[in-house]
Design a protein around this nucleic acid. Sequence first.
DNA 1: TGACAGGGGGTGT
DNA 2: ACACCCCCTGTC
Length: 291
Amino acid sequence: MQPPVEGGVLAEILDGGQAFRWLRGTDGIWTGVWAGNIARLRQTSASGLQWSAPAALAPAVRAALVHYLNAAPDAGDLADALPWRSDDHLARCMAAFPGLRLLRQPFGETLLCFLCSPTKQIVQIKQMVALLAERHGAPLASEDADARARNDQPARHRLPTWGELARVSESALRACRLGFRAGHIHRTAQFLADRPGWMEHTETAPYAEARERLCLLPGVGEKVADCVLLFGAGRLEAFPVDVWILRAMSRHYHLSGWKPAQIAQFGRAHFGRFAGLAQQYLFAWERQNRV
DNA sequence: TGACAGGGGGTGT
DNA sequence: ACACCCCCTGTC
């Protein structure tokens, strides 16, 4: 596989707020689950990456992983197309996180994870989705039950589908430490159950239409909609504005006092077609240099 | 080791 | 502007 990253950038990609289902073992190996896939990733050198998967699914996981990590050889071209030549702060962010990239996660799973995200930090979001998977998601078919028993490890589960979530009570969701997010997820599941094909249509609709449709869902506002489109649908024009981006734009672009919607519009205009990638660099830099 | 605030990557009213 | 829900974290 094409070496995707350098240094600590792998952690920023897997555990920096795009995805919530990667865990780092004490040995430094990352284990992640998405859709029916499970993979282990290890940084072997400054820019080398090693992966493994259960033997039965290794060929499928290899293909899925290349797509998921956005690791095609031309992935770097996207970053080069950003206006770093005329934007000193962006250039600085890009230099600090060489090889940073946007994941291509399953659309429905991304929606579920970001419905869990409001006013929560990464550790807590990971805890919620882990409970959702464990209690309401199907066990991964590929895992070797005997090996699990020997290691005394619990089975890994995929996240529940929206069809599965539609059959889970709100109180059962609340028991997954979701707080007020349980109602949002419950009502979104009912909404989707009543509208077959709604998600598929939304995933493939033009950006503006897809964003409007997502905002119809309970608990989805402009920020969450943009995260779902950016991390779960490959829409690089999406520019999620959270408190970190608000802070970054205030500090480095002299836009203090601007409202999130204005910042989003500015971001798309200033950074161009791949504004969402620029957002990810700014976000990573701001979070690393938090006060 | 344990109790106790404080605040959190947003949305909806 | 404020409630929503409650878990993590820092502090005593």
